[in-house]
Design a binder for these strands. Sequence first.
DNA 1: TTGGGTTTCTAGATCGTTCTAGTGGCACCA
DNA 2: TGGTGCCACTAGAACGATCTAGAAACCCAA
Lengths: 331, 331
Amino acid sequence: MTEQQRRPTLMDVAHAAGVSRALVSIVMRGAPGAAESTRQKVLEAARELGYRPDSRARLLRSSRTRLLGLSFFSAHAFHAEIVDAAYAAATSRGYDLALSAVASGRPETLAVESLLDFGSAALILISPTLSHQDLAAYAGQVPVVSLLRDDVGDPVDSVSSDDHAGVRMAVDHLTGLGHRRIVHVDGGIAVSAEPRRAAFRAEMDRHGLAARIIPGGPTEEDGLRAARTLGEDLPTAVIAFNDRCALGVIESLRADGLKVPDDVSVLGYDDSQFARLSYLQLSSVSQDAPLLAAAAVDRAVDRIEGAQTPAHVVRTPHLVVRKTTAPPRAG
Amino acid sequence: MTEQQRRPTLMDVAHAAGVSRALVSIVMRGAPGAAESTRQKVLEAARELGYRPDSRARLLRSSRTRLLGLSFFSAHAFHAEIVDAAYAAATSRGYDLALSAVASGRPETLAVESLLDFGSAALILISPTLSHQDLAAYAGQVPVVSLLRDDVGDPVDSVSSDDHAGVRMAVDHLTGLGHRRIVHVDGGIAVSAEPRRAAFRAEMDRHGLAARIIPGGPTEEDGLRAARTLGEDLPTAVIAFNDRCALGVIESLRADGLKVPDDVSVLGYDDSQFARLSYLQLSSVSQDAPLLAAAAVDRAVDRIEGAQTPAHVVRTPHLVVRKTTAPPRAG
DNA sequence: TTGGGTTTCTAGATCGTTCTAGTGGCACCA
DNA sequence: TGGTGCCACTAGAACGATCTAGAAACCCAA
């Protein structure tokens, strides 16, 4: 089969229905100005021919594109959850989503350029690693919304979660349970690792406790490696940079014959899908990624549709206590 | 800031460089037919104005789009690895990639339509769940390549892995170690669950062993639930539908105080990123997803550039033995 | 019947490119 | 001198839609 037939155009539909191109255009985009009877006739003809409007031509003419560009990291499973939520939010506001992944041989600039090439009316970047300068340059062309990173300079919007509040909740939760020797396995150079590190220091200080921080990273291996360096001086609780890192920590402890949470409590960050897995039941700070995604989409659409000044939305995270945190072993 | 300045066009560059639009076009796409001196002059002017070709207009005019549409499941972490590889393959053949995810409220048809709207010259669908009829309909419009599913009807290409061979390797590996009581936790209604189930039955038969199959699924929870039903009659080895399912099985066994691989060997499928995690070290059947992705891209490009008849590429998987399979406990 | 208002429909310009069919200039050679 | 071929360049028509301005059809009151 596979007849490489030329795909039908407005012209063809118009001809088949015996009306002008303009009228078909009116009908196809549901604009007012067509009699109900002809509207039906046109739709019928379109369906018959298998007509599908050419979005390139459509976009070219009417520069309002109703298209949001979203960049994400293919290696970051957590980002997939956000993509999911963003789709829902975008369609509910009548926009389509163009996706572009930051992958191994594909730097973020390339991903963003590609989104621009598709004619995105605005960009939503998840945890962007770009410089303020780069971000500003893009913001000069279209509205840019940074998701999960707030340190992005003036001209770009941001929708993020209050890292300090999140870490405070984590520390309060653990100290509330009676922990005093708490370690933070940090995120290394990952986005938002620095604010969480600082918040941990401040919060431990506030409680009059020593803030011990171990270099980590965003992956299981990072958590694993970090936990191995704990050595003799075992804490009673660990706050990991994120859930994957927490999992690495847990596995390392397990390998040493330690029980979580009996011997050591472990707290994650992100409340990602797998934190909820029944065998893990990881306590975690939830940033409510789906809500953040929706907020980012809203912000982007608002900017497209007129809002002038960039805004910086910060949401307060909340704690989800599951089975990996408990009071420290008595004694 | 955010000056919503009109973005410069060919016209502007032409005017600035004192040449015609057509010549600028020639220079911008690196076509022959421009003197080196003017070429430099034009490039200079373009750079100065911050000119960026409008891909919509460009695509509209030259219907060769150099764009591949790729659909994937946002919930399937494994698909992200394929996306990654597909990017590399696509760029190496000079094509760009349009991504579209199948997400919670977003059925596969919607994802595919959206790719078509972007003007994809061909579609690559990862583990498509569409009917033969739907697939054929799309294949009538553009070349369609199914990745990781081969039962897709005549008019669409497929690039997949030989499931029977994979399962044979798995069974041979385990029987070779001395296992005789082997269970398959299947994939339920997931794509390619059926062929693997059938292959397991056939291969166990060939070895003169009883093929015990337990209903499972593609997620950790499925594996967990399935493993719980093993009850008293414990096998010495389990072949899981995929790696995530295998992880669920392992965790369930662990929870019962059993050791992997000492008490029970567990084999995964996919050799996904996390199978390689140092604390897991999951033995797994590798489909070489990156290679498959590259093959799919190649196939799609070949079809776009002239190949007429659809092909069905089948690659042979290979076994990656790590630490979750071992000889059965003596006795 | 006329006239004004509304609704329905159409012709033609337009978006920013690429492509086709030239034009003009220069060098070479008979 | 003039023909031929080549190179650099250009004018203008596409591509397939939307948009603007205005024509045609219709309705109803005067």
